[in-house]
Amino acid sequence: MRILVLNWRDLAHPAAGGAEVYTEQVLRRWVREGHDVTLFAAAVPGRRAVENVDGYTVVRGGNRYDVYREARVWWRRHGRGRFDVVIDETNTVPFHALEWVDDGARTIALVHQTCEEIWHVNAPFPADLLGRYVLEPNWLRRLGHGPILAVSESTRDALARFGAHDVHVVPEGYEPPPLPAHPAKEERPTAVFCGRMVGYKRPLDVMRAVVQARREVPDLRVWMIGGGPDLERLRAIAPPGVEFLGRVSEEVKHDRMARAHVHLATSVREGWGLVVSEAAALGTPTIAYDVPGLRDSTRAAGGVVVPPHPDALARWLVELLPRWQGGIPPVPYGGAHSWDEVAKTLFHAVDEHARIPHGH
């Protein structure tokens, strides 16, 4: 099959995250199966406009705002007649390929998460209200005119609220990292947070919870792993027991995750919450806020979801730490699925749709 994937970022983009890992893992497996795959994404400083990555072609054009227009321009000039199916991978803003792919190729959307409450964290007033109540509902209603693949039950439920009914849930994947030797758990009670230091990940909630929990567990510490625009501000106000490591290598991240007794996840919402799977695969359970995405990954990984407030996080941290300090066995694939299985399931869903004539 000849497949075009549209995503505003590829894995080389400095802001790449879990959605881009998902894309890369799937596409390189599709190529191995003999499919012809092209990914269109925004330009990346220092990277070529057209590049071969693990057997598939990455075409880059535009920035985070006009990549959607550039994709349409590229389609008119180079794409028509070349593909059997177009996958509109949606990270808040869809490409709306269903509305401009005009040569008989089938289109299907792949949605990791909706934005919703994140607008109020990431955008200033009144842009947050415009995004939450006008722009995103319009984008998702239009997207719902065609079939959609969603990576969690939470995302499917969210899309249904915006009128999308042809939504099929596909699995999330994870490949446990190879560790030279599985490190021993810390002697001191230790938690780890891993994510970008931005508002919608709510690292400040973790700090507040640790301050409360240390009243009962005085030697509790938390490792805060991740870069981001709020890193230095948060580091400057870090209370005792909270250490900011900044952005670290995958090896360091996995080592710290494996040595900690509990992983904390406090996002406003996620598509799945791949970091939860990472921790579980290393034998570290998660206490997560009970929000879309995190509830899916945390329950699949055998963790605990709590009301989204620092008080609840602190209470459950104090409650569960003694039980978990002895260590728990790693969870296979962290509660997710192997990337081989994900690639096969996703291709089957895409292939099934590509064989259905428009209007049926």
Rank of each mutant, 00 (worst) to 15 (best):
L4T: 01
L6M: 07
W8F: 12
A16R: 00
A16V: 07
G17C: 10
G18N: 06
Y22L: 07
T23D: 02
T23V: 12
T23K: 11
E24H: 09
R28I: 06
R28P: 02
R29L: 06
R32A: 14
H35A: 14
F40V: 06
A42E: 12
A49L: 02
N52T: 13
V53G: 01
V53P: 09
D54C: 08
Y56W: 08
V58A: 01
R60L: 10
R64E: 08
Y65L: 11
R69L: 12
A71M: 03
W75S: 03
E89H: 04
H96L: 15
A105M: 15
I108S: 03
V111C: 07
E117L: 10
H120C: 06
P126N: 09
L130P: 00
L130Y: 05
L130G: 06
W139M: 08
L143N: 05
G144T: 05
S152T: 06
A158S: 04
A164F: 00
G173F: 08
P178E: 15
P180S: 14
P180Y: 09
P183M: 12
A191C: 15
F193C: 13
G195N: 10
R196N: 14
K201S: 07
M207E: 13
R208T: 15
A209H: 12
V210H: 04
V211D: 15
A213G: 13
A213P: 07
R214W: 09
R214E: 06
R221C: 10
I225M: 11
G227H: 01
D230W: 15
P240K: 00
V242G: 02
G246I: 11
E250D: 12
M257P: 09
M257Q: 05
A260M: 09
A260W: 02
S267A: 09
R269G: 10
V276D: 02
V276P: 00
A279E: 04
A280N: 06
T284N: 00
P285W: 11
P285S: 13
T286P: 03
Y289P: 04
V291A: 00
P292K: 01
L294S: 07
T298H: 03
T298C: 08
R299T: 03
A301M: 09
P308R: 12
H309E: 14
L313W: 07
W324I: 09
G327A: 02
G327R: 04
P329S: 03
P332R: 00
P332I: 11
G335K: 01
A336M: 02
V342Y: 06
L346I: 12
A349S: 14
A349M: 13
R355W: 14
I356R: 15
H358N: 09
